[in-house]
């Protein structure tokens, strides 16, 4: 069941992104979509709106890049509770650390191992 919900929620988030790309002028590139979704996810999360989506959708809400924003926001909020002002700076990046490190390590490894095919 949770797999079906992940499919639906994840699919819907992507569908919204696709509509934004197709229905707005050409200037909206994939980079803009990623930036928009990460900040959007963080803001929705801080407002308490993304959490419920994660409850329903599981990976369907955490795997889209908006889930990364959610992760950053929640990490920050928790760290502010625990450590105060210092947490505002360290919390988000700490929470996102695993994903970022994985992206850098795997990104670098793949770049060393493979050549683009064109």
């Amino acid at each position: 069941m949770s797999i079906v919900m992940a499919f639906l929620i994840g699919g819907l988030i992507c569908l919204v992104g696709q509509l934004i790309m197709d229905l707005t002028p050409y200037k909206v590139t994939p980079a803009h979509i990623l930036v928009g979704f990460v900040t959007g996810g963080a803001i929705l999360s801080a407002l308490g709106l993304y959490g419920p989506l994660v409850k329903i959708g599981g990976a369907g809400a955490t795997i889209p890049i908006s889930g990364f924003g959610h992760n950053l926001a929640q990490g920050t909020l928790e760290a502010v509770q625990a450590k105060g002002l210092l947490g505002a700076f360290s919390g988000g990046i700490t929470a996102g650390a695993a994903g970022i490190a994985a992206a850098v390590i795997f990104g670098f490894t793949m770049a060393v191992l493979f050549n683009p095919r064109g």
Binding site: M21, Y26, T29, P30, P116, R117, G118
Partner: peptide, 20 residues
């Protein structure tokens, strides 16, 4: 050359983007 032009003017060739 498709690949040299692509990386100069647009995206890296392995980037998963949709062409309009």
């Amino acid at each position: 050359h498709y690949d040299t032009a692509e990386r100069q003017y647009r995206f890296p060739t392995e980037q998963g983007v949709q062409r309009p």
